[in-house]
Amino acid sequence: MPSLREVQTGLARALTDASAVEVLPWVDGAGLGPVRRLHLYRNNARATLAGALADVYPVVRRLVGDRFFRQVADRYAREVPSGSGDLHAFGDAFPELLEALGETRELPYLPDVARLEWACHEVLYGADHGPLAPASLAWVPESQWGLLRFRLHPASRIMASPYPALRIWQVNQDGWGGAATVDLAEGASQVLVVRPRREVELWPLSPGEHALVGALSEGCTLLHAMDGALSVEPGIDGSGSLTRLVAGGAIVEARL
């Protein structure tokens, strides 16, 4: 008689590899053979994982089509097993698989669109936080502002792409009423994905703003972060950007 451990590892192998046979003699075949009974479970598990990826990556699915998406999703589920009982944690490395695929070379922006979708997914479930209290800056003398360090909203991610990933994401949203095509010549895009209120927001950033937010999120002082932003984008209105980040709720804490 197999141990419980043997049954579970055997069944797990049969779920991931249809040619695994060790579990077959342990399965009661009355009415329907063991192979077909295992097939039912294999299909259920596959559909659940592919469904979870389709929920997180609707734009990627729309761009590559249903059938190809299902193929890639199945491959992902085989190669990058879910490591948590929380299905929301599944799918983080999907952009890397898309990047490695030969078939999607004609859609070079696809991995970045996927990264943007994963960022939205993480931000949707990230911690809530209120805006920066104005009083928390009132006591800082102006001469010390350069030494301030900021904390970004816990539900926020930034990303940059050499492609217009944000525009591609936008035109593929349900209910989008604008032009349905994106000219790849629009070039690079930078995005802050943040949830200062109930819903996820996508803020387009200039290259300098992206550098600014990136440096602030790493704990750099405002002075250092501004220097970095200016070197990327000499014309940047740094104080305007900072005001927008604070007023919009993307920056939630300041300290000296």
Partner: peptide, 15 residues
């Protein structure tokens, strides 16, 4: 639903 650290997100049967 899991063994060897791999989660299937299904309710798998026990002997």
């Amino acid at each position: 639903g899991s063994v060897g650290g791999r989660h299937f997100h299904d309710l798998l049967p026990l002997p």
